[in-house]
Design a protein around this nucleic acid. Structure first.
Lengths: 230, 230
DNA sequence: GCAAATTAATGATTTATTCAAG
DNA sequence: CTTGAATAAATCATTAATTTGC
């Protein structure tokens, strides 16, 4: 991955400029207060401003965003259209059986919304079984959570008719008493799978000690930060 | 006992809308903020890595929450002496005027959902005016877009009054002719502001133009920064 | 004049919905 | 149809700006 090099130019900032008021907004009705009326704000702005954005903006090699429709103007319209072209060479993640297995394990163990750090760890682990990125993990949890939820809702909603058909899974599933699973790999550490399994439970333990319920508890733990996008 | 979600109801209803607001945006807080060093804070501490994953990962195990006892909120009001007590990366981004200005410029220029690359660039630029991370940019666009939308909806909903007092401002200037905004500013190119403005528009141009270029925007390994629209 | 109490704004997360690859 | 991916809407949480009572 070519890490886009960005050499930082100027160390010195360009004195903050008055930054003329462009789009004004965010006003408070009751604000009879002036901003900094004081000072004409440093007229001393150094003329030397080596600020070559150009190198950043258009590194020749830099691929650009692409918008298929040319006339796709900005402007107010397009509430949400935002046509885009699809990713060229990028295919979507195709999880392997192992990966899914682990993810489900984590999910059943109570993990719902891993934070950045956890995602990273998970990604590292899962990458042993196939190509995967952090965002895949992130999305997986999002989707799985949502879909489990709607599945549940659907079920509870449909039991007015057929008294039995669904009756699926219920909570049972895998017995997540981690002790059971973990106990066997105390000696052999070579098997990546085993290692991973252990790691998984460690991870779970780390995150949520007890909350292993189906309920959608509001996040018990506030994550300080989150991944960039979603 | 179903899990009942308590509705907060603290949302702002009041919203008196003074038509046409031409005030200033985001006044400088009168609060304990340093008048001068305002922009220089965090100058040296920031690692100059343009692309540090750490910025995307949680910075550190910052003190979260740390709620005081619930008995009474009587927090020891720190006297004027030393106000700020927590700078460290535990607080949320507090944009400077310049940053907001640029972001709004971009927004008005049509940018709505910058991709990873763009976010990265923007972040680099904005970091010249204060501490900022990619996710802040990302969130800003999300929020701004959403709030502009609801504001508009609110407006269109309340146009039952004045038969003709259309809030004209919709289309707002913006002329992508690179740097030629409708400012009466001047022609001097030395102004950092101007340079910045040019950069902004280049950035925009970058996005809305370029017919099609295959690329591999996998800039961010870890988390989704919505590489492409859908 | 100040600082706590209020209130409006907005940054950050989570949830719901939608799109499209396979 | 299933499900990865992405966006929008809703919500939570914290901060800045004002009001208010000394």
């Amino acid at each position: 991955m070519g890490s886009m090099k960005v050499h930082q130019f100027t160390r010195g900032f360009w004195e903050h400029e008055p930054f003329l008021t462009l789009g004004c907004k965010r006003l408070r009705p009751l604000a009879p207060k002036l901003p900094n009326t004081d000072t004409t704000i440093t007229a001393t702005t150094a003329p030397s401003l080596p600020f070559d954005l150009k190198s950043f903006i258009r590194p020749e090699s830099g691929p650009r965003k692409l918008v298929s429709s040319d006339d796709n103007k900005k402007d107010p319209p397009s509430p949400q259209g935002q046509v885009e072209t699809h990713i060229p060479g990028g295919t979507r993640w195709n999880p392997t059986q192992e990966q899914i297995g682990i993810l489900e394990m984590l999910y059943k163990g109570g993990m719902r919304t891993p934070n950045a750090q956890q995602i990273e760890q998970i990604t590292v682990q899962l990458s042993k079984y196939g190509k995967i990125e952090g965002k895949n993990v992130f999305y997986w949890f999002q989707n799985h959570k949502a879909r489990e939820r709607q599945k549940q809702k659907r079920n509870s909603l449909s039991f007015s008719h057929s008294p039995r058909s669904p009756t699926i899974h219920s909570v049972v599933t895998l017995d997540t008493t981690r002790g059971e699973v973990v106990e066997r790999d105390n000696d052999v550490e070579d098997s990546p799978y085993k290692k991973c399994r252990r790691w998984v439970f460690e991870c779970l333990e780390d995150e949520s000690r007890s909350p292993c319920e189906e309920e959608e508890h509001r996040t018990l733990e506030l994550f300080p930060l989150h991944p960039e996008g979603r």
